[in-house]
Amino acid sequence: MQEFFSMGGYAFYVWSSFGFSIAGLIYLYLASKSSFKKKFNEVSIWQIRENKRVDK
């Protein structure tokens, strides 16, 4: 186990590479998800406003 984590002395480079990559993927996932939600809210607010404008 100890040997696995030390990565033959390259632990810092290997683990930070994998760490950055996984973090990057998670960031992309969250960003896409939140952008969808943001856009959805934006459109529904826009639509409420638009309906009011048309009713007037």
Binding site: S32, S35, F36, F40
Partner: peptide, 20 residues
Amino acid sequence: LFFGAITLMATRGELLSRER
């Protein structure tokens, strides 16, 4: 596959906004 998934997710929002 991951790229495909997140692209599709983000595209949905973009489509909604463009086609409002």
